[in-house]
Every structure is written in C-alpha cells, then in structure tokens.
C-alpha cells in the first residue's frame, strides 16, 4: 500500500503518451502469450516431419520450421520463456539492489566494499561479461538469470543508494526518528518509498535489457539449451533458412523488438513523469 500510493497518485495526475503506449503494448504481449494457448491447441515441441519449412497458412499462422514445428506456437511459448527469464532476473535485481543500495547508503564501510564490487562489474561491456559468465558456468535458464542479474544490479544499487543518501537527512526522516521510530521502519516507510520512481525506471530498462541479453545469449548457443522455444534460439536456428523461409527469422525478431520497445517506452515515460524538472506546475 505504502509503495503504490505516491506512484498511483502521480499516475493519475499526469498521463503521458509514451507510458500509455508502452504499457498497452506490453499488456497485449502478455495477454496474447497467456490467452493464445487457451484458444488454440499449441505444442511448441511437436514435430511433424511431413510439413517442414511451410509458409504461413491458415493452419500454421507463421509457418513451420525445419523440423515441422509450429512457429506460432514456438513464438507464444518463447514469450513465456523470455518473459520468465527477464522477470526472474529483474525481480532478483530489485530485491538485492534495494537491500544492498540501502546498506551502502547508510554505512561508509559497506558503501566502500559494495561500491568497488559494483564498479568492477560495470567496467566490462555488459554483453561481453554475460558471455564470459555463461561460458564459465554453462548454459541453463537459471544461469542466464544470474548473469543478467549480476550485470544489472550495480545500477539499481546506485539508484537506491543515491535516494537513501538524499532522503536520510530530510526533515521528515529526522522528524520520524525523533519520534523514536526504529531504523527498519524508518527506512521501509519513510525513506525507500521515495526511491520508487527512479528504481521503477531502472527496472523497466533492466527488464528490456534482460530480454535482449537472453535472446543474444541463446543466439550464440549460450542461453537456453534446445529444444527450448526461446526467441533467441529461434533466430539462431533460422539463420540457415533466411533466404528460403524468412518468416522464421522475422517473427521472433519482431517479437524481441516489440517487447524491448514497449519496455523502453515505459521507462522513458516513467522518467518523464517523475522528473521534477518537467513538473513546472504552479501550486494554486
């Protein structure tokens, strides 16, 4: 309740086109991937050797691949995989990022340690580091989640840390402290909700980035092992047939673009909405 309130009130006060479009697209994507399996009998793994590399038709909306598997079914289940990985990574990033960010916002020693570790993670170009990590611990869904988490968590830590440092000295926090409130409640109720906005922005970009990284890793064969229907795997498999069956490449590519675009719109929209410099409203 506490966390959602300021967020919601701002939401209702200022609507903005980017945010609305982005949210609408993401909702459509989510709803589609949930509803489609209920409406159609979809099996992403069923092989039909008689119908290989078929063009889109009424039976197979997006055609079939080289094993005769339904591309539409694989796109729908690929959405599950992509979104699951991205969601797990983002959730892990949020939890760990908020905890570590809060700790380093409060203690100098912790800040020094956490800060240096974060910095050393940020030194590498993100995707290269992801490849290194996956190469080291082997391809698996959980490992992809871990790699994305490791790469993105420093940004969330920084954001939370900045908010904590800014608000821990605010009058209202001092006021709450002088009433005798314990440290935990002070942080959870008075300080952290102020970081909600910037953290949400970070996380929506992180979510988009997670989808991209998962696709990229799968494309390189470092992501989910086949026959998992991941969008990255699908693009990778479609490389050979780019001339003969371009829909195999096009469909997952479009989905990735769509998902990433929608989340970036949400992130930008949130940032605009929460940026105090853009709120030149006069209080009448």
């Amino acid at each position: 309740m506490i966390i959602s309130m300021p967020f919601l009130s701002i939401w209702f006060r200022r609507t903005n086109a980017m945010l609305i479009t982005g949210s609408f697209m993401l909702l459509l994507l989510l709803a589609g991937s949930i509803i489609a399996p209920l409406l159609f009998a979809l099996d992403p793994l069923a092989i039909d050797a008689t119908r290989k590399l078929e063009a889109p038709s009424a039976t197979y909306l997006l055609g079939t691949d080289e094993f005769g598997r339904d591309t539409f079914a694989r796109i729908v289940y690929g959405a599950h995989v992509s979104l699951r990985v991205a969601f797990a990574a983002t959730a892990l990033t949020a939890v760990v990022g908020i905890i570590l960010g809060t700790v380093s916002g409060q203690s100098r020693l912790a800040d020094a340690i956490i800060g240096r570790i974060s910095d050393s993670l940020l030194v590498f170009p993100g995707f290269v580091l992801a490849i290194m990590i996956l190469a080291a611990i082997g391809p698996a869904e959980i490992n992809v989640v871990l790699a994305v988490f490791l790469l993105y968590v420093p940004r969330v830590i920084r954001t939370v840390r900045a908010s904590v440092i800014e608000f821990i000295t605010a009058d209202f926090v001092q006021a709450a402290r002088s009433v005798g409130i314990g440290n935990f409640r002070l942080l959870a109720v008075h300080v952290l909700p102020n970081a909600t906005g910037p953290v949400m922005v970070q996380l929506s970009f992180g979510f988009a980035w997670a989808i991209l990284v998962e696709a990229g890793l799968s494309f390189l064969g470092l992501g989910l092992p086949p026959p998992s229907p991941s969008w990255g795997n699908m693009i990778s498999d479609a490389r050979e047939f780019i001339r003969t069956a371009p829909w195999l490449m096009f469909a997952p590519g479009a989905m990735i673009s769509l998902a990433v675009l929608s989340l970036n719109l949400i992130g930008d929209g949130l940032r605009d909405m929460l940026d105090p410099r853009l709120q030149n409203k006069i209080n009448l």
């Binding site: 009058d171 209202f172 926090v173 001092q174 006021a175 709450a176 002088s178 109720v189 008075h190 102020n194």
Partner: peptide, 16 residues
C-alpha cells in the same frame, strides 16, 4: 523530548 520543526512542508513524510 520531542521536536517541532521549522519547515512544515519538509517535515511531514509526503507519501504518508
């Protein structure tokens, strides 16, 4: 001992 702060705009947690 309790305190009354100077700035009533800054001393109340805005989201509560």
């Amino acid at each position: 001992v309790q305190m009354v702060f100077q700035d009533p705009y800054a001393s109340l947690t805005p989201h509560l």
